[in-house]
Design a protein around this nucleic acid. Structure first.
Lengths: 316, 316
DNA sequence: CTAATGTCTTTTATCGTGAAAAAACAGTTT
DNA sequence: AAACTGTTTTTTCACGATAAAAGACATTAG
């Protein structure tokens, strides 16, 4: 797993920095965008729910906005004084969770090649290279282990299982099992279920994307996830829903990594989605099954062709 | 999740005890049992693989055995001097992993009632009640989360989802999907595959247990797990194999907790297993499917009836 | 009297630290 | 020279401590 001597990659000052205030910074940035729209901000609890943070954080945000002259703040009155400038925002890098930083670093190493199956993963080394504490790395590895790419040796190191052809096949096998079942459950949902409206909206987005595919083809990956998650949710089974995290994670990195014929692939996928949606709306189980199978088959094919042979040989 | 004020349940001395040497103690105990059989112990590396620990730990064990007069140790010669007495063993409680201690504590609270869905879990409180550090509790909760019984609110507490009827149904739905597929894969395995010998051995154990069911009915749970794991392994899919951890965990606690008609239930199950094994050996996919379905149906029924209604109403 | 703000307490996230355990290295024995 | 023992270095595991963030309580405004 060795990669570079040190260079303190994403790390900041090495001193006893306990916890970054990325929650505050991220919420602050999002709050800035809110400023554009209104002349005055809502109450503290309301802002809290809007931004998904506690009132403590909201108050820190307001305090800084007052300091930098963005708002005038007196009890309930929070009047916007000026529009936010680009330099009001905190830099993007400072708004990331530690978990995100670690995941990115780890996946970069994993996909950068040289990461062969059977190789052992060293918590301490990883922590040092990324510039974080060992605890965070351990917790990340534990969470990450459910993706089936790494495995722990009791009282000892982690072992990389490798992003192999076998992995892709096992993953897609489950995916197909789960999605076929979910799609059938979806089609059987009563007409007054709110999911039909959700599906309608997604269909519109797909049609829009289909028209602008030449320029916006990279918008597909996000739409893809939303669409499949909607379908999986119809299973009403937490294990099926949760398993989509594995798929989403793999496809997320796969999209970043395999850019070959991206436009063409996505164009085909959009078309398959539209046919799939049509089938769901028809509520004809036979059609749903066929459309689902067809799409999943080509998704699997895409994933498989993107795995270089060098990565798919080993198996200890 | 509140349960008791303090009472320092499983806890030891509260002081800065960094890491318990349970690996050493457990290996020591197991090594004592080895002493009964031979007049002299093998080499250090050999002992290491035998006990599943490093040579460092082996040497600590040998050092203590020498001290307590169990063996004479001089380089390669490790002669047994006397048989181990009961007081040579470390107490059972001291050989448990921290993870096991936490899991037991946590499950006791969960099943002891009063643990209703929606309730929030407090890391700090849990750590204090069990008498361990917060880090270990956090790591446990992260690992435990894959069982689908708890869920994390970002930057905040964990939420108990509850051991409800819905949970049991979702669990068994996946189980049935996976096991039917695994069983079919099993039956399709070539005649020279080693699994057929494993199956044969398991069949013998089942027949033996069937004869002595009145006295040994509690030996079933362990046999049950071995049998189903063998079948799941035939899927050659890590997600299917890993999912059996969820099932095993639930059934493990379920067996401990629901003692109603245990003998009868296990007797029936042994019979179903034997029929299931027969079907597998016939390699007739229709028969396999039928036998598997029948057994899984009654397993589900057993699990469902053991969930009290009080636990199955809430859902926030 | 409800819903906000102001203040104080508790919990979570993360680090550095030190003992237990593993692993690597070096020197012996057969 | 292969496999073992003796020694040293690294890594894992678990803890307490501390800043960030959440949450609870008290007070005040509408």
């Amino acid at each position: 797993m060795r990669f570079k001597p040190a260079a303190a990659s994403a790390g900041m000052n090495g001193s006893g920095m306990s916890k970054s205030n990325n929650v505050y910074k991220d919420a602050y940035n999002r709050c800035l965008r809110l400023l554009d729209e209104t002349r005055s901000l809502p109450s503290e609890p309301e802002l809290g729910t809007l931004l998904g943070v506690s009132r403590t954080t909201v108050r820190s945000i307001l305090a800084r906005m007052e300091e930098t002259g963005l708002i005038a703040w007196n009890k309930r009155a929070k009047t916007v004084l000026r529009e936010p400038r680009p330099d009001d925002f905190f830099p993007e890098e400072e708004t990331d969770t530690l978990a995100e930083i670690i995941e990115r670093s780890f996946m970069r190493r994993l996909l950068a090649g040289g990461a062969e199956a059977g190789m052992q993963i060293n918590e301490l080394e990883l922590a040092r290279e990324i510039g974080v504490g060992t605890t965070s790395v351990r917790e990340f590895l534990i969470r990450f282990s459910r993706f089936g790419l790494i495995e722990k040796r009791r009282n000892s190191h982690w072992v990389l299982k490798g992003f192999t052809r076998a992995f892709a096949l096992e993953l897609t096998e489950i995916r197909e099992m789960f999605e076929l079942r979910s799609a059938a459950a979806f089609a059987a949902l009563p007409q007054d279920s709110p999911v039909w409206a959700d599906l309608e909206r997604l269909e519109d987005e797909h049609r829009l994307l289909a028209r602008e595919i030449t320029t916006r083809f990279n918008a597909f990956s996000e739409l893809d996830e939303r669409f499949h998650r909607l379908i999986h949710r119809a299973s009403h089974n937490r294990f099926i829903v949760d398993f989509y995290d594995v798929i989403a994670m793999i496809f997320h990195y796969h999209y970043q990594w395999n850019k070959a014929q991206e436009r063409e692939r996505n164009e085909v996928a959009v078309g398959e989605h539209l046919a799939y949606i049509e089938a769901l709306k028809s509520r004809d189980l036979g059609k749903v099954d066929a459309a689902c199978r067809k799409h999943l088959k080509s998704a699997r094919q895409t994933l498989l062709t993107s795995i270089p042979e060098s990565r798919s040989l080993q198996k200890p």
